[in-house]
Each structure stands twice: as C-alpha cells, then as structure tokens.
Design a protein around this nucleic acid. Structure first.
Lengths: 227, 227
DNA sequence: TCAAAAGTGTTTTTTATACACCCATGC
DNA sequence: GCATGGGTGTATAAAAAACACTTTTGA
C-alpha cells in the first residue's frame, strides 16, 4: 500500500495581463502565516479529490475572484525547504488574460487581503520562492510568444496592430520594425480585419482586428515564428 | 498550519536511448501491486526529505542501476484517479543517454523484476497513465531537438555525421537531405572533426566527430534550428 | 569488381531585414 | 495648422530547399 506522508501539493499561479502598454502580473497580499502581509503569487493547497488543473481554477478564483481562466502548468517546484512549515511541492501555472475585460479583483476567502495588478518590471521580493517561480514563468511565456498565438489572450477582443506590436515589444523587451511586423502578422492570415475603427483617440483612428481562432487552427498545428 | 493529507508524490522517468538506428525507451517489469507484471516507466515515490530532482536520480538508480543521469522534469500529472490505491501526483522527468556506454541494467530493489530497452515504435500498453506520460515526453524532446543540442547525449562520444542524421530522422520521423544536413550542422561550428575514422565497417570509413560543449556554450545561448 | 555508404556544390526559392515618407484625425 | 500615431513598398541579404554524382573501402 501507499505510505502515509505529511506531504502537501499546492498550486501557484502566474497570471499575466497587459494594460497601458505595460505587462503586469497578478499578486495578492497574504493574510495568513507564514509570510503574513507579504506579497505573493495567488496560490493554495490542492484538495484530495480534485485534479491539479481543477485546483488551479478554484484557487485562483478564491484568491482573486477571477473565473474560467485558461491556465497551463509550466513547472513543478519541489525543494525540501521551500515552505517553512513542512513539505510542500507546488505546481506552477500561468495564464494570460485581458485585464480590462475583467471585473474588479475581490478575494473570496480570507487567505488574501487583496489582489491587484503589478507591473512585471520592478517586482518586489515575493513570499516563499515565488520570485523564482515568476521568473521561470516569465521565461516560458517569452519563449512561447514566438511560436504560439498567446498574445491575443492578453489583448481585448478587438485590437489595433500597434497594440499587438507593443505587446510583443513589452514581452520580448525589444523594439520591432513596424512594417515588417505588420507584414508578417498579416501574412499568417489569422487576423480578421474588422469594419471598425478605434474610438476616442485624438489622432487618426486605427483599424481594429480580431484573432480568428478557427483559421489559426486550420493553418497551423501550433507553429509560427514572430519576434 | 498545513493540513494532513494522505497524498503522495511520485516520479516517473522517460529515458531515451539510441541503438542500431532506433530510438528506444527504458521500461521495467513491475514486481508490485498494482499492475504487478505490467510494463511501466521507472518510477517511485518521493521521500519526505529529498527534493524531487534528487528523488528522480535515486529512483532511476534503484529500478535500473543507472546513475548520474541528467534528468529534466517536463510535466506533472495530477488527475485524481490516476493511481488506483490513492492520490498520487507524479512529476515526470526525461533523460537522453548513451545505451552502449552503460553497464547492464540491474534493478537494485525488488520493485522491478527487470529493466530493459524497448523501441519507441510499437510500445505496448503501459501501467497507470504511463502511456500518456511517455507520449507527452516524446513530444517534448521532439520539439527540443530543434533548438537544443540534445542529440549528442544519445550518441557515443565519437560519432559520424550519418549517425547524427539518422538520429534526427528517427526522432523527427522524417527524412532529411544529407547535404543540407551536413552543411548546416557543420556551419554551427560546435562539431569537432577528429583525426580518426570509423572502424570495422565493410565500406568506406566515415570521419568521426565530437560535440564541443565549450564552443557550443560560447556560440549560443541555447539557440539553434535543425530539422 | 561489386556493394555500400562517404563525401561534396550550385542553383532556386523563401524568408528576414533595413529603411522613410505621406495620411488622417482631433484639438 | 500642428501634433500624433496610422499606414504603406521596395531592395538587399540571409537562410532554406532541391538536387546527383564521384570516391573510398572491404569483402
């Protein structure tokens, strides 16, 4: 039979958002020991009767009020002493979401005082090994941006090509050539040009585009190269 | 405080080898319930006082007699019912090794009757969700082969360009053009041509090459594209 | 001398890069 | 009318792909 251990699995979530040309990440202020009052990634313990994917959804909801995020695990952290109170192995997940499309952030449980967006530049020291978890996750999505259409998960449904480009530039941390970027993006054929323009700007309004998931699926089996 | 759960972490290892132009994987025959007598990936339970990376090394050693493999985790499997006797979350690791450089396979514990190499084509149904774990791992290394120098971990220290190419072909499951392959590989500059030739073949002996890790490190920060 | 694999270049096509000016709009 | 970002094309360079024959060796 299986041994009985006092071992615990947890989930930690690295949730990226994009707002005002800046890449942000979702943090909570802890309301529990250890690391009470510290900033941390949203994370908690997996129950015995839920899969880790389900646990990730639930935990994020409880700590931030956000639901139905599409999260993907990216790494498992299993050092013996990563949690001061015992053996806790944590599976880290990431998601990319539209900040504006979301209602306000409101923790449902008492474990977090609040949840809020913080720019990825100038992150403070986080609780546990969460700074390391964040870095690993950031590197993953940076890599993935090159060959998967994850950028569109961060933008509003309708976006301009300039917004798309500035997102790429923010994540990859480098400038891209405007003409080449647009040429390549449009050449893939999965962007649908809308009959609509940007509103409320004090300069020439840009065309709006939509990501066409259907077409993407037909064209690619998950491959592209940008940046 | 942390709750007490009857939860267990385990490690499963997907170990690839290359022999006779064929990609192989290391399997064990189980000597324990559940799935007694079934074929399975080498895997076992993580102790409370060891990191998951350490556990992976230990477990592989105990089940196969292989030591000092450089393993990397690639995914964590956490469905509730993946183990019939209770909640077990498993972290899957892979490694690529030289079959010929290794001594014989000899399990150190009683949990495995034997360990052996099996071609990745025509794998039988494995215990637990190990078939799924294998598939996930195989896809990972197939992806990684494109941009990381992992092929050299599978070949003997000295190898011919044809051996290298046939390894790429076996993993990617497609034919590559000989001239283009050689041109590109050599252009990277991390292959060292030796003053030595193949022996014991009944045809023109090919030059032997070595992977120059030093040069690779200098030239790349982990990037290349082949296949 | 034959079988088997080693070794070798050139052309074409595709993809990436570099680069600068006029346009439309709101204030 | 001016400030702001929107929008556009071409030329060059680099990389990838297609393609077939001669050489060496051992048996």
């Amino acid at each position: 039979m299986l041994p009985k251990f006092d071992s615990v699995f947890s989930i930690d979530c690295v949730i990226f958002g994009f707002e005002a040309g800046e890449l942000k990440i979702l943090l909570i202020e802890r309301n529990e020991e250890p690391y009470k009052d510290w900033l941390a990634l949203p994370g908690y313990i997996v129950e015995q009767d839920e899969s880790i994917d389900d646990a990730a959804e639930r935990i994020l909801y409880e700590l931030t009020g956000l639901r139905d995020m599409h999260m993907q695990q990216f790494h498992t952290f299993g050092e013996v002493n990563r949690h001061p109170q015992g053996r806790v192995i944590t599976v880290a997940y990431y998601a990319l979401i539209r900040i504006n499309g979301q209602k306000e952030l409101r923790p449902v449980t008492q474990y977090a005082k609040k949840a809020f967006w913080h720019p990825v530049s100038e992150l403070p020291k986080l609780a546990f090994d969460h700074s390391e978890i964040f870095n690993t996750g950031f590197n993953k999505i940076r890599r993935r941006l090159h060959y998967q259409p994850i950028a569109f998960e961060l933008l509003p449904e309708k976006f301009t090509l300039t917004q798309l480009q500035s997102l790429y530039e923010a994540v990859l941390n480098k400038k891209l050539d405007k003409r080449n970027f647009r040429k390549k993006m449009l050449s893939y054929g999965f962007l649908k040009e809308l009959d609509e323009k940007q509103k409320g700007v004090s300069y020439r309004a840009a065309k709006l585009y939509k990501f066409d998931k259907r077409k993407y699926g037909k064209i690619f089996q998950g491959e592209m190269t940008i940046g």
